[in-house]
Amino acid sequence: MIVAAVPFALWLAAKAVVTLGLMLGVVLVVIWAELKWSAHIQSRVGPWYVGGRYGWLHPIAEALKFLQKEDLVPEAADDKVFRLAPYVMLAGTIATFAIIPIGPTVVARDLDIGIFYLLAISSLSTLGVLMAGWSSANKYSLIGGVRAGAQLIAYELPLILALVAVAIQAGTLSLNGIVAAQTETLFTIGGFDVALPFALSGQFIGFVVFIIASLAELNRTPFDLPLAESELTMGYVTEYSGLRFSMFFLGEYAGVVAMAAVISTVYLGGYWMPGISDDALDWLGPFILVGKIFFIVFLYIWFRWTWPRIREDQLQRMAWKWLIPLTLFNIMATATLKVVL
């Protein structure tokens, strides 16, 4: 291939730009989808005029609107931390994209310790939230930030434990390896080789728990306590405006896409789809992955506009009393099956 001819740095930059561009493109579509789908759920029309039809340029228009607004920093705020927080949050989520395979050979970086990296880097965004909550010098922000911290501790564990079971079943920590493991033939019916994604073959509990925990990780309803508009006005983003607010906004949706991409990859077979050759997957893979991402995003949006918000103590109870024991059971079951089968 042409890879060898291009200097490493340039190649890296190109990969970064392509990955980022692709994923941010998806993020904009997801923002539009949230506006539009939520509108339809609520029997509204939603964005309509911007861009001529269906308001398809609405996310861009919103971004432009935010750019025009004054970038306010409260007088009592801790300037540097306050200004840095949105970027920390955004960086944490965007860095996740680096290891998501979008085709058999198309991945920004295939890490051996992919899951490990994923879990480490995704917690970074919560650090941004904590920074924002603390530095705003606003009590609502503070409570929001602390809530986010408590939520992180409670829900990172089910996430990790759910992925541990996946790693056991796949026998690797690399995301490419996990996708490859899901393409292996499980059994044959009438001459057809049947391969099932992990969500359908052994990791269903993990899949459900992971979706629930990811909602908490993303601060989405019913776990949007750090934002909790009706209680904390807007939680940790209360004091933000203009560009910095839009960074949080973008970070939130980038997080949604990143998490949906991880779920698609780990549990739904990622770029892979039965009946399509590996060569074709190189260019069809991204579309398949995006399709799966949108399935998960649709679930997220559906949940958000249907359910109310639970309370902090109920959230903790759910994590420690239900999700963690469930995932522990899941690990044991997976390990046992792995040895037996």
């Binding site: 609520q42 029997s43 506009w305 109310p308």
Partner: peptide
């Protein structure tokens, strides 16, 4: 009331 508890959709349905 659901809006106070974090759910926004009921508002639109009933207002309609």
């Amino acid at each position: 009331y659901p809006l106070e508890l974090g759910g926004a959709t009921a508002l639109m349905w009933a207002f309609r």
